[in-house]
Structures are given as C-alpha cells and as structure tokens.
C-alpha cells in the first residue's frame, strides 16, 4: 500500500475516534444537558435526606434549575445541610419551599423547589438559606406506618362489634 492511502486511512481512523468521543460526550453523556452557567449556592436543612446524592437534579415545576452540590451532617442541629447550586438566571423568593422527591417509585431522588410569595429573593452570595423544607419520604417508614395503622384498625374492629352486640 502506498504512503498516501495509508495516511488517508489513519486520518480517517483518528477522525472517527474523535467523532466517537464527541458523540459519547454529547449524545450519551450529559455534557450538553448538564451545562449550568453561573450558579449561586443556597443551603437548606432537611430532617432526613433519604437517598439524595450530590449531583442530583434540583427541579422547579419539573424543570432542572440546578444540582445538589454537597450534603453534610450538621452536628449542632442534628440534621442534614444540603448545599444547592442554582443557575443564576433563576431567582427564588425567600420563602421558597424545598422538598425531596423520588422520580417513579424507586427512581433517583431530587430536590423540588416551590416558590413562595415573598417579594425578597434568596441571597446569591452563598448565605441564602431555605427555611421551609420537607424531608424525604422513606419507603420503609411509610410501609411501617401503614402496617401499624392497619394492625390497629384490625384489632379495633372486632372490639367494636363486640361492644355493638352488647
């Protein structure tokens, strides 16, 4: 094989490899969808974060507005401090309500922000704090509550009928 055809093949090979890499980044990975511009950080305290992980999406009205930056345990309040990175183009009022939800029954967990009616906005200097939060729904707790309430209901029914009969 002569030199020029070989060069051509190698050139095609390298180009195809780079295209595959870009394809992976754009089509398979989240390089395009993940692009948050400038962000600001606010913190929120949760009693229970469930299975929330760093980099989980923050959604408002279903639209991704940011990502969870870090999760730490607050040893003074004995709860979790979640730092939320929110895109600078989205501003939220001070009385915004944050909750942790699950997509689908067993899917990944994300933070939902619901805007309140305050006229003042959350500070963008990193000191912003979301006061109203709702902890994650933990499936085991929910089932536990359901089972115990069911058990109470069952034991009370025969008693009632007995009382009625008397």
């Amino acid at each position: 094989m002569d030199r020029t055809t070989m060069d051509l093949w190698v050139g095609l090979f390298v180009a195809a490899g780079i295209v595959a890499l870009i394809g992976l980044a754009m089509k398979v990975g989240n390089l395009t969808s993940d692009h948050l511009g400038d962000t600001y950080t606010v913190s929120a305290h949760f009693d229970d974060i469930g299975g929330l992980k760093p980099r989980a999406p923050i959604k408002s009205a279903g639209v991704v507005v940011g990502r969870v930056d870090s999760i730490q345990f607050d040893s003074k309040r004995y709860d979790a401090v979640v730092k939320l990175k929110i895109d600078k183009s989205y501003k939220f009022p001070k009385d915004t309500f944050a909750s942790i939800n699950t997509s689908g029954l067993l899917g990944e967990q994300y933070v939902t922000l619901e805007a309140g009616g305050d006229t003042e906005m959350l500070e963008e200097d990193g000191k912003g704090k979301i006061e109203h939060t709702q902890p994650a729904l933990v499936l085991e707790k929910l089932i536990g509550q359901f089972v115990s309430s069911k058990a109470e209901g069952d034991s009370s029914t025969p008693q009632n009928t007995m009382e009625d009969a008397q």
């Binding site: 490899g17 394809g23 992976l24 398979v28």
Partner: peptide
C-alpha cells in the same frame, strides 16, 4: 498508546 483510547471510544459508541 494513541490507537487504544480511540478504539475504545468507537467501541463504546457503536455498542450504544
């Protein structure tokens, strides 16, 4: 050394 990452990227892309 140059070929391997290119081949692996193509492998992943074609696999997807």
């Amino acid at each position: 050394v140059i070929s391997m990452p290119l081949l692996a990227a193509m492998f992943s892309m074609v696999g997807v």
